[in-house]
Nucleic acid binder design. Structure first.
Lengths: 112, 112
DNA sequence: GCCCCATAGTGCTGTTTCAGAACTTGCTGG
DNA sequence: CCAGCAAGTTCTGAAACAGCACTATGGGGC
């Protein structure tokens, strides 16, 4: 089955994953919830390639989770901010965070 | 950055995603929470290829989220059941489900 | 004994996605 | 005029994935 076909799946979990179930999208949303909004910030924070980042941002805008907002006219510059729909993903990120904190401790000695 | 390098990330969300942030893993866990446990059941329910399914099951067992359990000796057969660690992902799946139900309605006329 | 079935995978081939780095575009400041 | 910043785009090779066939092990019918 192709991944894109999940968007019509009967299961709401599958539909959700069809939007943000790839390897980087949730990390972008984490950064948004932490207050980041610019392309370079996402690139540095997540460590993903600029190519994939551009693609994911485009998809998130199409999905209505982010809005592409011009913050500078002179040299045309855009940043990305969460819509209400996107902000409602916060609980999901938090449950993932809590599970990770409990079950996936950092291996390095320097505790958080 | 390679995906596998996320497992040592400072961020618990990133560490969580390093385990189950690919395109199919959360769908397998959904099926587990729905009571499925056998290879063929997962394959049919999720529609993923058997190749990827085998790989994901192996990883989930290594991560301590599933256990591979022999349910038949005669022809050696195994099924997969959630550990406690795995069951604690239920809240995360539920928040994803709730978001999907609210924001990603099925396009087909036949409502749920 | 022989054949087919069920179950849990593995192998193979071609397509899609991803990683990494360089390049582009439009403007600012020196 | 050149360097620098920001938001991408282009290019090439590597990894992951899709689809299907195939293997392995035992059971049951005939």
């Amino acid at each position: 089955m192709k991944w894109s076909e999940l968007s019509d799946n009967w299961c709401p979990v599958a539909r959700t994953l069809s939007v943000l179930g790839d390897r980087w999208t949730l990390l972008i949303l984490r950064d948004c919830l932490l207050g980041l909004s610019r392309f370079e910030q996402f690139a540095e924070s997540s460590g993903m390639t600029r190519h994939i980042l551009a693609d994911r941002l485009k998809r998130l805008v199409e999905a209505g989770i982010l809005v592409r907002n011009p913050y500078s006219e002179a040299p045309k510059r855009y940043d990305y901010v969460l819509t209400e729909k996107g902000q409602e993903l916060a609980p999901a990120l938090m449950t993932l965070r809590d599970w990770g904190k409990k079950h996936l401790p950092v291996r390095r000695a320097s505790a958080s």
